[in-house]
Computed example of a mutant assay.
Amino acid sequence: MKKLFAAVLGMALAVPAFAQMSPVGLWRNMDDKTGEAKAEVRVTEEAGGLKGSIEKVLKKNANPADVCAECSGDRKDKPIVGLEIIRGGKKEADKDVWSGGKIIDPENGKEYRASFTPTEGGAKLEVRGYLGPFWRTQTWQRVN
């Protein structure tokens, strides 16, 4: 009985550590130019792929009623708060990297291929957007 309890306890303690090395959670992204917080993005995993939506806008002087005027398709003129900016992305075998997804920049409406890599024990998330052979990486902070 003690061995069973120890095994169950060990698995229960390992699950939160494993969950931290995932892009799933609430993240704060920062402005590349000013270093100020821009938004909080909630990332979930559905049907084996990632989905991320803006939960809160943190920019100074942001209007909560703003819409994504530059977006196209089903995101055109949708409110920024609640806007789905991440679609797809699956975990690569034997790596803590989710790739094959897309991310949209609501400021200009451009969509980029994307990868997501948890770092520092899951406290940070490297979000890399690709356009052709070029890329840009942002580091997001996990919100507790």
Score class of each variant (00 low, 15 high):
98 W>I: 03
47 A>R: 07
33 K>R: 14
144 N>M: 15
51 K>P: 08
93 A>G: 00
14 A>E: 04
65 A>N: 14
21 M>Q: 13
35 G>L: 09
82 G>Q: 12
11 M>V: 06
98 W>N: 03
132 G>H: 14
65 A>H: 07
86 I>S: 10
3 K>N: 11
11 M>D: 00
22 S>D: 08
125 L>M: 11
15 V>G: 01
98 W>M: 03
11 M>F: 08
74 D>Y: 07
139 T>G: 03
33 K>V: 13
21 M>I: 09
123 A>C: 03
94 D>A: 14
8 V>D: 01
51 K>D: 13
69 A>S: 10
123 A>K: 15
103 I>W: 02
126 E>N: 13
118 P>F: 06
117 T>E: 13
10 G>Q: 00
111 E>H: 04
115 S>Q: 09
50 L>A: 07
142 R>N: 08
90 K>E: 09
57 V>K: 12
15 V>S: 03
48 G>T: 09
96 D>Y: 05
52 G>Y: 04
121 G>K: 07
10 G>C: 09
130 Y>N: 05
58 L>G: 09
2 K>R: 11
123 A>N: 14
121 G>R: 10
141 Q>P: 01
91 K>E: 04
18 F>R: 06
122 G>T: 08
4 L>S: 04
89 G>L: 02
75 R>T: 08
65 A>D: 14
137 T>Q: 04
108 N>P: 14
36 E>V: 02
74 D>R: 11
96 D>Q: 08
119 T>K: 14
119 T>E: 12
55 E>C: 01
45 E>H: 02
106 P>I: 07
11 M>R: 00
24 V>E: 13
9 L>W: 00
57 V>C: 07
14 A>H: 04
122 G>S: 11
9 L>D: 01
21 M>E: 12
61 N>F: 06
8 V>K: 00
95 K>A: 11
103 I>V: 15
84 E>S: 08
104 I>Q: 04
96 D>P: 02
135 W>V: 02
10 G>L: 12
99 S>T: 03
121 G>F: 07
67 V>P: 01
77 D>G: 02
63 N>D: 15
102 K>V: 10
44 T>W: 06
40 E>C: 01
45 E>I: 09
10 G>S: 08
65 A>Q: 14
81 V>Y: 04
144 N>E: 15
129 G>Q: 02
114 A>C: 12
6 A>D: 02
101 G>R: 05
128 R>G: 02
104 I>R: 03
76 K>N: 05
144 N>P: 15
106 P>Q: 08
71 C>E: 01
104 I>L: 15
73 G>I: 04
61 N>R: 09
97 V>A: 00
101 G>V: 05
10 G>T: 05
80 I>P: 03
78 K>L: 09
134 F>Y: 13
